[in-house]
Amino acid sequence: MSEPVHEFTLKPLDWHPYVTPVDLETATEAQRDALKITPSNTKVSDYVLVLAQEPETLKERSPLFNDIMYSKEGLSRAGREMGALAASFVNKCIYCATVHANRHIQLEKRPEVIYAIYEKGLEADLPEYDQALFNFGVDLTAHPDNVGVYQFYHLREAGLDDLEILDLIHAIAIFGWANRLMHTLGEPHIKE
């Protein structure tokens, strides 16, 4: 049996639930229906099978997640991954962070930006544009009751328009959601 991982890593991870996933053999009609659309559409993961315990929310969440992360125009896909990563660092969702850090590396081919975050965490010193996205993700996640003029002007200063800011808000917020499932209902292990 592998050991749970407690520190941020870029190595591939598995996720082990603390609760019992739905058994496909005995799934209800509502659960089967909700499982048709998953963010990956490949093999149904334990994570999705855990969420299928609450099928009505899962059914809406999967297309919402896909639209937030992959819709056309607005903020770049990598920019959305940066929002996801910032949220996951604040919430210490090691699994989410790994997945979205690696996606950012694939999309942007600037691994040094991600390495800087893995080295310094929330204090990472980044190129100006990345810093603006990352800092807003940290602030909105850690203090949703305290974002205002300071954060807004930094985003504008970095050149973001209204639609890009809207996309960034949602990328951060959907990880406020994802982290609260993934980190609280299970834990990561190094992939075997």
């Binding site: 909105l140 009751d145 960034l168 808000i169 959601w177």
Partner: peptide, 23 residues
């Protein structure tokens, strides 16, 4: 899972509203 899903959704909603208020 119900409790986690509800908590996760409402926190998403809180973050979206906080960000939109800033805008």
């Amino acid at each position: 899972v119900t409790l986690a899903s509800l908590t996760a959704f409402v926190n998403y909603q809180i973050l979206v509203v906080a960000g939109l208020k800033m805008l």
